[in-house]
Design a protein around this nucleic acid. Structure first.
Lengths: 196, 196
DNA sequence: GGAGGAAACGGACACTGTGCCCGATTGGTG
DNA sequence: CACCAATCGGGCACAGTGTCCGTTTCCTCC
């Protein structure tokens, strides 16, 4: 895993000592493992133990759980941003939005219970999650605005609200997949009243 | 506040001593106050302190936070059950479902953050919340089935899934109201593909 | 109306998770 | 290689949870 480059997490200011970078990457990997296995509410200490470092090290690199979340999802967020830019070229504006949201939903279920917390963080500016997601949000806003402009999406909802809503959809407790019809209902409901 | 009669919470087995009943009702009232003010994640102790009783008393009456939730929402749930039965007589099956869900959504926002926890408990059988909501769920299932039978609601979703979904909708952090378009999107998305 | 027993009370205790702090250690530099 | 700053990581204080048990209160029966 590559430590933050252009990201908003911590770097770009100073080169970081080699042991610090090693621990940073180890904590990131440990976070993925622990949260994937025990859910987003797993004891924060477990991450430090899994990484084989002390509590102090963990808290220095990631002051809060949300900071670690933000770092963990960074690569997925980058991916989603790229995809949103690509889909701006797609012929059907509505299908582009729908396809992107399906991808977003699939990715959001990677870590149990995390998508709900991320969805919450998306809204409140100032949160590390919101900072990490800003480029993605901007890219999706363009995609969404295009569909709205063409009248393919209802006009009384903002792109951020859609992200929050989809991120908050209930998930299967164990599989982690969104229960089938939930996303379909939202997608169908996003279409303007005129369209079926 | 009337202590549980036909409810599933604790009673109907033994008459409860007068001091026990007094404390039960005091804890219920305290729970409403504390959760309304500080949200559903407020320290459980605060409920005991607000009620002027010890921790032991609180935990004896309500072994878990969810047990207290179930008791607190009992009267709202009863109300919703009654309304669902009434709406079975309504001429328009779809409008009946929509109206009931709007009521459900409005009620679900009474205590900050509680609706999400209740929505989670709704799904997992065995939880006190699920037990308290069973009559309501049954009544809504009939209402929902009627609309589905008439082809006014998409057929690939169950009534329980709808309840879980609406209960999980993001809420305004402060006001507690569902952000406007969320419920509209779900309602619109529940209609079958043929209808606009 | 008072004595005995069961039920209920409520504070103390042990435990877990969190977040911070500071002495010890390690790495980079002249 | 020696020094200084950056980093490490264990220890500490604190808050929330849930349980246990000695004490108190209520109900019943005489």
């Amino acid at each position: 895993m590559v430590p933050p480059k252009t990201s908003t997490t911590a770097a770009a200011t100073k080169p970081l000592r080699v042991d610090a970078r090693r621990n940073y990457e180890g904590l990131l990997a440990a976070g993925r493992i622990v949260f994937a296995q025990a859910g987003a509410d797993a004891p924060f200490d477990d991450v430090a133990r899994e990484a084989g470092v002390g509590r102090g090290t963990l808290y220095r690199h990631f002051p809060t759980r949300e900071h670690l979340f933000a770092a963990i999802i960074q690569d997925r967020v980058d991916l989603l941003e790229i995809r949103a830019r690509e889909l701006l070229q797609a012929p059907d504006a509505w299908e582009a939005v729908a396809e992107w949201l399906r991808l977003f939903d699939r990715i959001a279920t990677a870590y149990g219970g995390m998508s709900a917390r991320v969805a919450r963080g998306l809204a409140e500016s100032g949160s590390p999650v919101a900072a990490a997601c800003t480029p993605m949000k901007t890219a999706f806003r363009r995609l969404f605005a295009r569909a709205q402009k063409e009248g393919r999406v209802r006009s009384d909802v903002t792109s951020t609200q859609v992200l929050t809503m989809v991120g908050s959809l209930p998930k299967h407790p164990h599989s982690g997949d969104t229960i089938r019809p939930y996303l379909d209902i939202v997608l169908s409901g996003l279409k303007p009243p005129s369209e079926g």
